[in-house]
Computed example of a mutant assay.
Amino acid sequence: MKSGFLEKLVARLDRVVPGDVQQIVTRLIREKGFLEKVFEALHEGVIILDPNGVIGFLNHAACQFFGLDPEQAPGEEISTQIRGLDWESLGKPGRTVSRDLEVFYPENRFLNFYLAPIDDADDPGAPLGYVMLVRDLTTTRAEAEETLESERLNALTLLAAGVAHEIGNPLNSLDIHLQLLGRKLKKLPPGDRKPLEENLSTAREEIQRLDQILKQFLHAVRPTTPHRERKDLHVILNETLKLLEPELASRQIAVQLDLAESMPLAMIDPGQFQQVFYNLIRNAYQAIPCEKGRITIRTRVSDFEYIISIEDNGTGISPEHMGAIFEPYRTTKSSGSGLGLLIVRRIIREHGGEIAIESEENQGTRVLIHLPHADRPVRLLAAPETDPVIDL
């Protein structure tokens, strides 16, 4: 970095008395130490660069953001230390840059950096160097996404009442009129009645499908309060498997159970958790394209939570679909409503838990449910067996 002030000072040293030189040097040392302490106290990253993009100074926050060594990074070009930064396109005299950057090491963070030139008063066209200020937007971005999700659900909730009225009532009316048509068809000769009855049956099935989608939509957007009871998760899981047994058998899909030997009763809404298991197991076998698939269900319990894993060997989920997997009406199935996982996540979150999904294309998908205990045990440190003896 061009010294500027120091070059001018050296040129005039012969005119400065020794006492003044000592005061100037002492003042520079104090100011340097003070500024370094200020920079180290900042939560934002600070990187000082020379005109060629060589690092002259960086604070502790910058080292944490980018995983840099504070001893080795100074003196190195920033392009070699931070992946994705091209100094040739960034370091332009007189130009200020603000840019978002996602880094994956040492942690996955969303950062924003501001790069500004340090102008030389005597030569504005040739900056003394550059200062880069780096902010961590990871938490802010997560909060913004949560706010956006909340606003989206609130908007859907407001629409729910209108949807129920504008679609639900006409569906009921259509169903009643189709029942009347069915009674009149019975009076026709059998030859004329059969094709009309097939069309009528198709129309009624479609009305029932629309009614089911409407109910799922309303359940997904309306806030609900779980009616909790102490229930055995294994019992609810086995009851759900019994309901799905015919579909699993028809597809020749084997279900392997690896259940915890001792599972304490959980404070849950049994109806809602049966819906969770039903949706997840159904998603699992529908993701298996051919017969003789496999679904593995595991349960574990720790001091703080229940862990339930449902894993299949199906087609998996592509990276582009993983990012929008919980968005309403996003589905890869031709007959799906795209509301199943949204409902599942809402139920689990209303019970204080979280859901995680791991998937690899053409390998399969694993869904993990983390459900906290209603009453977490208090772990106390054991008292020492004997007090230490101190000789005086």
Rank of each mutant, 00 (worst) to 15 (best):
Q256R: 12
F326L: 09
F34A: 05
P264V: 03
L257T: 00
E305Q: 06
R294W: 11
P106C: 00
A11I: 04
N169T: 06
V134K: 02
G191Y: 11
S201C: 05
K231Y: 08
Q81P: 05
D175K: 15
R282H: 12
I310T: 03
D20A: 12
I369M: 13
T224D: 08
L68F: 13
M132R: 11
P124Y: 08
E31M: 10
N199S: 14
F110D: 15
G323F: 08
A11E: 14
E229V: 05
L280R: 04
Q286K: 15
V235H: 11
G336S: 06
R12L: 12
K184I: 15
R152S: 09
L158Y: 12
S98D: 08
N59W: 07
I48A: 10
G94I: 01
E146N: 14
R99V: 03
A287G: 11
G91N: 07
L178H: 06
D123C: 02
S3A: 09
T365F: 12
R222F: 07
L196G: 07
G162P: 00
I310D: 04
R135T: 14
D50S: 06
A121V: 11
P127S: 03
E311L: 14
E145T: 05
I281R: 01
L35N: 09
R222V: 11
R204H: 07
G53Q: 01
H373Y: 13
H234A: 10
K2S: 08
T299R: 14
M267Y: 06
T296A: 10
I82D: 02
D258F: 03
